[in-house]
Nucleic acid binder design. Structure first.
Lengths: 230, 230
DNA sequence: GCAAATTAATGATTTATTCAAG
DNA sequence: CTTGAATAAATCATTAATTTGC
């Protein structure tokens, strides 16, 4: 239980407002409902070989009850996501994330995410994936913003879009954390690196097992999988 | 290892500084604040606050030794990947994956991945992420292949790029597993589901009415994170 | 003032692209 | 060249700040 009610009603607007110049070509937002998958009346499923994934996957149990729509709804986690809501960051959390971002963090690794999450958890409910997504989105949107700005200001004679400053971050960031952004930003060779995985299953009984256990090699992680809606 | 300060050179420039000029268009109203941007007046260095991630993250231990460059390289994971870098699927594994794919699996969710992985593990070392990536890549590359084929044959008079077959999926797959592909799968130019054009049409009248939003999504996730390997 | 309607912002997912191992 | 791995871009979906009409 412990339904952590999402109280959080910070007047969220006391920091900064930005002009938000938008060259009026914003995309209209979807005002229409969705779904009614009945469209594409003609195009229908193209499955050539009906394969029973469930029985493959769980040979002992077999496909269960076939039609039970309650398959996941009824069981236990009804309350886990009270409203099926998404993460709603608090001001403190955002502030810290911004700080980290400004500090140079771009691609926190699993361990860092885990720890950031732990810290941010002091201020509200949060999961690792939220942190992960936050950095992804923030990075991408900063990039967009910059691009727009560059376009807007492009009349000025070749102002370098960046300035090289040297800053010392007190041993705080790993190369990994800040890598990954430089690279495409200005045409650098886009170095890539390999990373490891593992996965968590928060809902069942798995436990996000972050292991920096030595030599266990894999490190941990999460990747976005769809829930089952949509 | 000598003490070598980690000095990062931020080539990253002033992303955050907004051109506070509002192009005479509409007066976009800033809806949500963003925070902290303090001033937009001056070109301020992005890193305003050297932030110590490690001490933030692990307050008890503090920045450790500060300079030890071996901080992450030297320690423990030297041999983490004994020799095998990436997954090398066996014939059986590939066979099963292809069977699943033909069966309609496209976006297995985390639980499915977990279970597929368990099954495939009988035939060789494998991790969940390998399964995840396999489906991602296979799907994308099938799509490419089809696109090439379509282009190649495109001279024929408007042959519908898809075939209408109606097939029953034998209870084996969740809608999710197969969703997300149809819709883009056929019909090359990015045709989206009806959602898109629907709102194009009535873009300014209806209220965004999302259908049933109950669905406590399961949240098992994995997301890509780098360990620290190269 | 308030509640419905509107809309920018942004969290979460999927797709496209790229790198690099073998 | 094929394909596993990883990141970036695009998109979908939801929330909350703001308008608007009483």
């Amino acid at each position: 239980m412990g339904i952590s009610m999402k109280v959080h009603q910070f007047a969220r607007g006391f920091w900064e407002h930005e002009p938000s110049l938008t060259l009026g070509c914003k995309r209209l937002r979807p005002l229409a409902p969705k779904l009614a998958n009945t469209d594409t009346s003609t195009v229908s499923v193209t499955v050539t070989t009906p394969f029973d994934l469930k029985s493959f996957i769980r040979p002992d149990s077999g496909p269960r009850k076939l039609g039970s729509a309650d398959d996941k709804r009824e069981t236990i986690q009804v309350e886990t996501h009270p409203g099926g809501t998404r993460w709603n960051p608090t001001q403190e959390q955002i502030g810290i994330l911004e700080m980290l971002y400004r500090g140079g963090t771009r691609n926190p690794n699993a361990q860092e995410i885990e720890q950031i999450t732990a810290q941010l958890g002091k201020y509200g409910k949060i999961e690792g994936k939220n942190v992960f997504y936050w950095f992804q989105n923030h990075k991408a949107r900063e990039r967009q913003k910059q691009k727009r700005n560059n376009l807007g200001l492009n009349h000025s004679p070749r102002t370098p879009p960046y300035v090289t400053t040297t800053t010392t971050i007190s041993s705080s960031l790993t190369q990994d954390s800040i890598r990954g952004d430089f690279g495409r930003e200005e045409d650098s060779p886009y170095k890539r690196k390999c990373r490891s995985w593992t996965f968590e299953c928060l809902e069942e009984d798995k436990r996000y097992n972050c292991r920096d256990h030595d030599q266990g090699d894999k490190t941990l992680e999460l990747f976005p999988l769809h829930p089952e809606k949509r």
